[in-house]
Amino acid sequence: MDRNQISKWLKNPGKMANKYSFHVVYFCTGCGIIEIPPSITTRWDAERFGIIPVATPRQANLFLITGYVSTKTLKPIIRTYEQMPDPKFTVAFGSCPINGGMYYDSYNTITSLDKYIPVDGYIAGCMPRPEAIFIGITHLWKLIDMDKADGYKRYREDYVHYRANQEQLFGELDWPPLFSEENIK
């Protein structure tokens, strides 16, 4: 253990444990999934940063959205995000989830992802290399230290607005609201 961080561990052990054990669920949209196999295997070895891929969203706390999001894949993304246990963090890859990227005028690619689910960080690039993914993860550590990676809290607070946006895009949704009004309070 790093001696400089002992005070941090004693202060807030839960947060530190979250920080160094990211269990990742990938959503394989678009081109970004090509970067994932080299970064989780021996060439770049994501496990030295405490990142490990898991099978299901119910075991995960980091959600990587790798590439553009079409309207059809947005539904499973929302469902996956809602299944993950708190605290959970979302990182979106590339320029497409930010503003549509090269698909800015596509008939079925949504232009900005953070209208539908909260996004804690974006990694710029088209596509970002595995080094950029790890830099993004270290930035996420800093954000967690400063309590700024609060996407899951925002999702709970503003769930009415997120749900309204999702319903404006899809019409009626197939699943009931995640939080009732009592839960939000």
């Binding site: 800015y104 596509s106 949504i110 232009t111 953070d114 925002r154 503003d158 946006n165 404006q168 895009l169």
Partner: peptide
């Protein structure tokens, strides 16, 4: 795109 995705407000605007 303007009429569908562009008309959906961001969370700040909703608030």
């Amino acid at each position: 795109v303007e009429n569908t995705f562009g008309k959906i407000p961001s969370i700040k605007e909703r608030k």
